[in-house]
Amino acid sequence: MIKSPSTQDDIVLLNAYLDDELDAAAALAMERRLAADPALAAERDRIEALRTALRERLPREAPSPELRARIERAVGIRPARPTLFGPTLFRPTWGTLAASIAATAIVASLVTSHVVAPNITEPTPRAEAGAVLSSHVRALMAPQPTDVASSDRHTVKPWFNGRLPQAPRVVNLDASGFPLAGGRIDVIDGNPAPTLVYKRRQHVISLIAVAAPDRGDTSSSRDAQAGYNMVRWTDHGVAYWAISDLNATELEEFARLFRVTAADG
């Protein structure tokens, strides 16, 4: 049913190639086929045009605002307006009151130990990961994940210059398939932290830079929370957190490219 030399299998492989789902050897073979076969190349152009049209012009429809409230009511979460401290999730019961007293005691003891022994209370990676996750999720819920939207690093970097004592390193990874989308400022552990936003296909990657003058350089390590992958590392007194719903392999690739390029620039 399909003209030779392309078979339906070729078309399936071509689609997978364009979706970045082929391994290196199969991708190379496909690239050779594309160079030699104009019919297959025309098919590629069609698929590319279709994907671009879907990405750029298909209307994105949001669920109605009442849906969330309906669901929260259905599971018994009191629908709350977002406040500085997050939604109120439950009514206090004796158990939770007791718990909050205990929590207060723990917080108080943490504060005390902070005063008494400042050296051992550096925010743990775990706590910082929670703050990074919240910032990323909050950014995704906002109409824009960026405060300055630009793919030009010469626009993004000066934007930080006016707002933070030290602007982050901004690198261009467009050629590797991670276009810059812009930047924003998050607050991690009470301190403003510059955040760069990159994209991979439809995925948003937040790269949050937290000042950590006392920490030595580390190699990257990987973590996952609430369905998001995270890669963290420390370079020149800055702890970097890359977080995204992108798969872990590509996120690590992103981290590696960023480190290499930032070190060169």
């Binding site: 939770t96 007791a98 909050s100 205990a102 929590a103 005691a105 723990i106």
Partner: peptide
């Protein structure tokens, strides 16, 4: 929330 549940079990 993590604090709360943890603390509650301590309590």
């Amino acid at each position: 929330v993590t604090y709360l549940t943890h603390a509650a079990s301590l309590q």
